[in-house]
Amino acid sequence: TYTFKVDNKDQAKKAAKWAKKLGLSFQIEKHGDTFKITVQ
């Protein structure tokens, strides 16, 4: 499981695209202005 934080929606979208490309499941949680992405 890999967790990282991004500062904006664009970065969150890029991370989601990357995870989908690799066939991984992911969750994006919004914490105020940051997004926490968990990829597994």
Rank of each mutant, 00 (worst) to 15 (best):
T1F: 11
T1H: 10
T1V: 12
T1G: 11
T1I: 13
T1Q: 10
T1K: 12
T1W: 12
Y2P: 02
Y2V: 07
Y2L: 10
Y2I: 10
Y2N: 03
Y2G: 02
Y2F: 13
Y2E: 02
Y2D: 02
Y2W: 13
Y2R: 07
Y2A: 03
T3A: 05
T3Y: 10
T3R: 04
T3H: 09
T3V: 12
T3S: 11
T3F: 09
T3P: 02
T3K: 04
F4H: 02
F4C: 15
F4M: 03
F4A: 02
F4I: 06
K5V: 15
K5A: 13
K5E: 15
K5P: 05
K5Q: 15
K5M: 15
K5I: 15
V6P: 01
V6F: 10
V6H: 01
V6A: 05
V6K: 01
D7Y: 13
D7S: 14
D7I: 09
D7Q: 13
D7C: 11
D7K: 14
D7E: 12
N8H: 05
N8A: 04
K9L: 15
K9D: 06
K9I: 14
K9W: 15
K9A: 13
K9N: 06
D10G: 12
D10N: 13
Q11D: 11
Q11P: 01
Q11M: 10
Q11R: 07
Q11E: 10
Q11H: 08
A12P: 01
A12L: 12
A12W: 03
A12G: 03
A12Y: 04
K13N: 09
K13V: 10
K13F: 08
K13H: 08
K13W: 10
K13D: 12
K13M: 12
K13P: 01
K14H: 08
K14N: 07
K14E: 07
K14G: 04
A15I: 15
A15Q: 02
A15N: 02
A15F: 15
A15W: 15
A15P: 01
A15G: 02
A16Q: 09
A16H: 06
A16W: 11
A16D: 02
A16C: 14
A16V: 13
K17L: 12
K17T: 08
K17N: 09
K17I: 12
K17M: 12
K17W: 10
W18H: 04
W18G: 02
W18I: 06
W18K: 05
W18S: 03
W18N: 03
W18F: 05
A19R: 00
A19D: 00
A19Y: 10
K20H: 09
K20E: 09
K20R: 10
K20Q: 12
K20L: 09
K20V: 07
K20N: 08
K21Q: 09
K21G: 08
K21D: 07
K21S: 12
K21T: 08
K21R: 10
K21P: 00
L22S: 05
L22V: 06
L22P: 00
L22K: 13
L22D: 01
G23T: 02
G23L: 03
G23D: 03
G23Y: 03
G23W: 02
G23E: 03
G23F: 03
G23H: 06
L24A: 02
L24C: 14
L24G: 01
S25C: 08
S25Q: 11
S25N: 11
S25F: 11
S25K: 12
F26L: 08
F26V: 13
F26W: 06
F26A: 06
F26D: 00
F26Y: 10
F26S: 03
Q27W: 13
Q27G: 04
Q27H: 13
Q27A: 10
Q27S: 13
Q27K: 13
Q27F: 13
I28R: 02
I28V: 10
I28W: 04
I28N: 01
I28K: 03
E29M: 07
E29W: 07
E29N: 06
E29S: 09
E29L: 06
E29V: 11
E29P: 00
K30F: 07
K30P: 08
K30E: 07
K30I: 09
K30S: 08
H31Y: 11
H31P: 01
H31T: 14
H31W: 10
H31I: 15
H31M: 14
H31S: 11
H31N: 11
H31C: 11
G32V: 03
G32Q: 06
G32A: 05
G32Y: 05
G32H: 05
D33L: 08
D33A: 08
D33G: 09
D33R: 07
D33W: 05
D33Y: 05
D33S: 11
D33Q: 09
D33K: 10
T34N: 10
T34Q: 14
T34L: 10
T34G: 15
T34F: 14
F35E: 00
F35L: 04
F35H: 02
F35P: 00
K36Q: 14
K36S: 13
K36R: 12
K36P: 00
I37K: 00
I37V: 11
I37A: 02
I37P: 00
I37F: 08
I37L: 04
I37R: 00
T38Y: 05
T38A: 04
T38Q: 05
T38V: 07
T38K: 05
T38N: 03
T38R: 05
V39W: 04
V39R: 00
V39Y: 05
V39M: 06
V39K: 00
V39N: 00
V39S: 01
V39Q: 00
Q40I: 12
Q40E: 10
Q40M: 13
Q40Y: 15
Q40P: 03
Q40W: 15
Q40F: 15
Q40H: 14
